[in-house]
Design a protein around this nucleic acid. Structure first.
Length: 626
RNA sequence: GGGCCUGUAGCUCAGCUUGGACAGAGUGCUGGACUUCUAAUCCAGUGGUCAAGGGAUCGAAGCCCUUCGGGCCCGCCA
């Protein structure tokens, strides 16, 4: 069982007491007590009934406390009214402790049945395949990957998609660079191909557009050829794109993210999906042909209180938003699926990665969902709002298409300075085109070597291979945690120096708590006996740890319902704090009695199992040493 | 001009969805704890007119309104 049962019991008990006292039915809150001296659980019903009953909240709480005691309770050991008016409850720990500890050992501890196995699609990453990933992309990847892990834990059947815009302007840019700009398409010695394309080719060709207008014209031609997909240039483009994509995916995998399917824009363009979606919009009256004004000859979408949005230009071509509509409709299963699916690779976790193809000899699979979450930064909110509206019209059901937006990652003044940019003390938006960014690989490498030094200092007997493994796990833990612990609508100012901090509210702090627990379990040299009596654990440190362990599923539910990955980050931190406090104040292996040693060992075991599962939702490895 | 987001301790942020008990962390600074299950830890101290003003409420950091500061978006570009 978990704390949920305790909450439910109290809710029911209070309700019964109200009924018996003849109080009118009221929606009241059962919540964790804000301070330990108030007990474990609090109820605000006194305040809510005060007006109707014309009594002080405290008097009501007191009457209810007396009434509550009349019925037998299982998980509550004490009920009392507080001066403030709250009704407070103390948990029955001798019962709670063993039940929480035992539940936490189950493989699917923390699982909640929110999704009831309904199909959910999460799309994230979706970086133009012409450059290496930078820390801004990392935020997208981590949010998307974490949310898909959480939704899976909440019993959704999740498919993860990565949209590859292989026929867009940014790809055209580097193709121009290779074909007409004099850049070799050979990967330079000691460099990843994605870095070479982004750092050198993309940035310098963009610069040259300023002075060489002929290159700009060539780009338009290349773009057209990429969309048509038949020419020599298009084949060359396809080859380049896939080389970059392969390198990008290595970084994603390094970060711990995996996917189910790669969706190529070029295939959506060639699949006729757009024509089908366009006809549907026309017949539903979603888009109209403008006969006058500045948008004359265009198909537009009318929006309340905002400018009309052009979908189809007067020359008949589709705009950027328009291209997203058939894909969104495809994801929701609204349009017939024109794709077949080809094996791309098997990822490290064993998860198979597929790719869309238009070759009907390949397999037919289903990567679509009843609900679709698209992770895109909030600068795209306006366009995403349009898509959301069209999808709810298509589905005649709101909320099936969800844009999960997040604020951008900017560079701190100090970090900008390392890129030779003086921002005058302000943080600055990253820009791939201007070459103003910090790459994900670079951050991970720096972090990894920093954590390697730390790990080596502490574990001199460990060999190089183990140390490298630990430092990589810790580096990724550190990066993933900073990207997820903050609310989605807060800007993250990335500072290279600060990102190396491994103390306090960080990923490594949490991982360290896990490693400490593992050491105790190892050194104990025996398995805990969970059937034994655990009553001897009576300190606040033990009780608090049990309480935190016991609310894992409530946190998963909260995170999934609100699509808020930080909830799990905060929970992991809380678990770690609770354990470290316990660790510093009570002894496990040298406790007073054999039975107490066993009891605490059970608790430590329960903690590390729970933290391991919670960290897994964040995609952070739990190292047994560090 | 319109739309979205944001303003809480020196700094970075929780808390706001669902109003209630002295507003919490981390970091910084000051001091303390390693012959002990790993000090990437713990303990204590320091630090806040919750941007400002108004409103409804018995009660507001939270709800409503106004104002001010900061960021982003508003192309027949992608």
């Amino acid at each position: 069982m978990t704390l949920r049962i305790l909450f439910d019991e109290i809710r029911l008990g209070v309700k019964d007491a109200c009924t018996r006292l003849g109080y009118s039915e009221t929606e009241f809150d059962i919540s964790e007590a804000s301070r330990p001296e108030f007990g474990d659980v609090s109820c605000n019903i006194g305040f809510l009934l005060a007006k109707a009953l014309k009594k002080r909240p405290f008097d009501i709480a007191q009457t209810l406390a007396e009434e509550y005691k009349k019925n037998s309770t299982k998980y509550v050991s004490k009920v009392s009214a507080h001066n403030s008016g709250y009704l407070n409850f103390v948990a029955n720990y001798p019962l709670l402790i063993p039940e929480v500890v035992k539940s936490s050992l189950h493989a699917d501890y923390g699982k909640v049945n929110l999704g009831k196995n309904s199909k959910m699609v999460v799309e994230h990453t979706s970086v133009n395949p012409n450059k290496a990933l930078h820390v801004g992309h990392v935020r997208n990847i981590i949010i998307g990957d974490t949310i898909s892990r959480i939704l899976h834990k909440a019993s959704y059947d999740v498919s993860v998609l990565n949209y590859v815009d292989d026929s867009g302007l940014q790809v055209a840019d580097i193709i121009v660079g290779f074909k007409y700009g004099g850049y070799s398409d050979k990967t330079p010695e000691g460099q990843k191909f994605d870095h070479y394309c982004g750092d050198i080719v993309y940035v310098s060709i963009t610069e040259r557009y300023e002075t060489d207008k002929h290159l700009v014209e060539l780009r338009s031609d290349v773009l057209k050829e990429l969309e048509e997909g038949t020419s020599e240039i298009a084949k060359f483009g396809d080859d380049i794109t896939r080389r970059v994509l392969d390198e990008q995916l290595k970084t994603c995998w390094r970060l711990g993210a995996t996917y189910d399917c790669l969706n190529f824009e070029s295939q959506i363009v060639r699949s006729n999906l757009w024509a089908v979606a366009f006809e549907k919009m026309k017949s539903m009256g979603i888009t109209t042909l403008e006969n006058e004004g500045k948008n004359m000859g265009c198909w537009v979408i009318k929006a309340e209180s905002e400018e009309d949005k052009v979908l189809v230009r007067s020359n008949g071509t589709a705009t950027y938003v328009a291209k997203d509509i058939p894909y969104a409709a495809w994801k929701l299963g609204i349009l017939e699926d024109p794709f077949h699916y080809k094996h791309y690779t098997v990822q490290k976790t064993g998860r198979v990665l597929w790719q869309t193809v238009l070759d009907d000899k390949e397999t037919k699979l289903n990567f679509r969902g009843d609900t679709v979450i698209t992770v895109i930064d909030s600068r795209q909110s306006r366009l995403q709002k349009i898509i959301t509206k069209i999808m709810s019209d298509f589905k005649s059901k709101p909320d099936s298409y969800i844009h999960l937006g997040y604020e951008s990652v900017t560079l701190s003044p100090d970090t900008a300075k390392t890129l030779d940019l003086d921002t005058g003390g302000k943080s600055v938006q990253m820009s791939g085109r201007k070459g103003l960014y910090v790459s994900a690989d670079y951050v991970l490498d720096v972090l990894s070597s920093r954590t390697f030094e730390e790990a080596k200092k502490r574990n001199q007997e460990l060999d190089e291979i183990s140390l490298v493994k630990i430092s990589e796990q810790v580096a990724i833990g550190a990066l993933r945690y900073t990207m997820i612990k903050q609310d989605l609508d807060k800007i993250i100012t990335f500072d290279l120096t600060e990102s190396l901090s491994l103390e306090g509210d960080t990923g490594p702090y949490i991982q360290y708590a896990y490693a400490r627990a593992m050491r105790i379990v190892e050194k104990a040299g025996r398995d805990p006996i969970f059937e034994a009596n655990l009553d001897e654990m009576q300190t606040v440190y033990e009780k608090d740890l049990v309480k935190v362990i016991g609310k894992f599923d409530l946190q998963v539910e909260d995170a999934a319902k609100n699509l808020s990955p930080k909830v799990i980050a905060k929970y992991c931190y809380q678990l770690a704090v609770s354990f470290n406090t316990f660790y510093e104040h009570v002894k496990v292996l040298t406790a007073e009695s054999e039975s107490l040693i066993n009891a605490r060992l059970c608790l430590v075991y329960s903690f590390k199992e729970t933290l391991g599962k919670a960290l897994d939702l964040l995609g952070i490895d739990a190292p047994s040493r560090m």
